[in-house]
Nucleic acid binder design. Structure first.
Length: 207
DNA sequence: CTCCAGGTCTGGT
DNA sequence: ACCAGACATGGA
């Protein structure tokens, strides 16, 4: 028996969360971190003059020979809109580069769209997010859960799928059906329950 | 060298 | 509506 004590749901910036999960499709978590680090290092504005401690790997593009790394924040969507898709592809994004590029173009053409989406009720916000290229039900739920504090969102990824099939006997259910089940079964804090299921299943898988 | 990875989109029944 | 394949690419 494990406790999973200390498990938390972060409230991350909406736009950054969207970017992060646009990178996530069929990629391992370690690789997603790498993609995000490359995007920040190559296309994000520097955060300091190299005066910080060198305890993270966010500033990958450290000047050669320099003793102190420079940290970069993630690029904004406005900045991403000016980056050629080929340069995005060079950040290990693969086919996701097109999704990010097209999303950036759309957001650039619709000022305020993202901020408005963040304030909408769950279902409306989700519907709008799903209209973006590369954003399906799962990514939309992750963006709303981690980037907008919508704890009723219940993202169904491959791990949750396994869990619901193996431990809840929901074999044969479609992904949308499983998402609906999660929201109904776990209620207003379904997203929190999802995090425990996810963490549990991944912990069990490690051996 | 195959297989798979915090999915989504597209074109077939 | 439901079901495969494709999609890029680095780890396992």
């Amino acid at each position: 028996m494990v406790s999973l004590s200390g498990l938390r749901i972060l409230r991350q910036p909406f736009g950054e969360t969207l970017l992060g999960f646009l990178c996530s499709a069929t990629k391992q978590i370690v690789q997603i971190k790498q993609m995000i680090a490359l995007l920040a290092g190559r296309h994000g504005a520097p955060l300091n003059n190299g005066a910080g401690a060198d305890e993270t790997s966010w500033g990958l593009e450290t000047a050669k020979g320099s003793a102190v790394p420079t940290f970069h924040r993630l690029p904004t969507w406005a900045e991403l809109a000016r980056v050629p898709e080929t340069e995005l592809r060079a950040c290990l994004l693969g086919f996701r580069a097109r999704y990010i590029s097209q999303t950036a173009q759309y957001l650039a053409a619709h000022p305020g769209w993202l901020d408005e989406t963040e304030t909408l009720p769950y279902l409306e916000a989700k519907e709008r997010l799903c209209s973006l290229p590369g954003v399906g039900e799962k990514v939309a739920d992750c963006v709303l859960l981690f980037g907008a504090g919508r704890l009723e969102a219940f993202p169904v990824d491959v791990w949750i799928l396994k869990t619901l099939v193996r431990r809840y006997g929901l074999d044969g259910w479609s992904t949308p059906q499983l998402a609906q089940f999660g929201r109904v079964h776990f209620g207003p804090l379904a997203g929190l329950a999802q995090q425990f299921l996810f963490a549990w299943e991944r912990q069990e898988a490690r051996k």
